[in-house]
Amino acid sequence: MTVVYWLAYGLLAAGALLSLVRLARGPSLLDRVVATDTLLVIIAAGLAVHAALERDPTVVPVLVVVSLLAFVGSVSVARYIGGMMLRSPKNEPADQPAGEVPR
């Protein structure tokens, strides 16, 4: 049992550390968004592993909150970066249907 504990938490911690390094080093904002998303998923997975190994269902509602938070955070930052992006002036038909793209 101890071996399982160490192995599971070790793998999760290694993954979290690697994505944390990417979060610190990431050259652009979107890299940090992706790294934050991965980090939150790994944290939720760690909570679930704790709940499963200890047979302790008290942290299960926290899982719902963490996964919801990850979604809301990444989508809002992505929309914020997309809002920074203005269209170039020669692209006047703003709502061009996608069917006009030559394939």
Binding site: V4, L7, A8, Y9, L11, L12, A14, G15, A16, L17, L18, S19, V21, R22, S28, L30, D31, V34, A35, D37, T38, V41, I42, A45, V49, A52, L53
Partner: peptide, 29 residues
């Protein structure tokens, strides 16, 4: 199952750190 899931988390960290751009990092993550 828990160990396989933890191993997938490790691979996600590796891919997020090692891959070259946003799309591939997201693919791994």
């Amino acid at each position: 199952l828990l160990l396989i899931g933890s191993f997938l988390c490790l691979t996600a960290g590796l891919g997020v750190l090692r891959f070259p751009d946003v799309l591939t990092r997201m693919h791994a993550g």
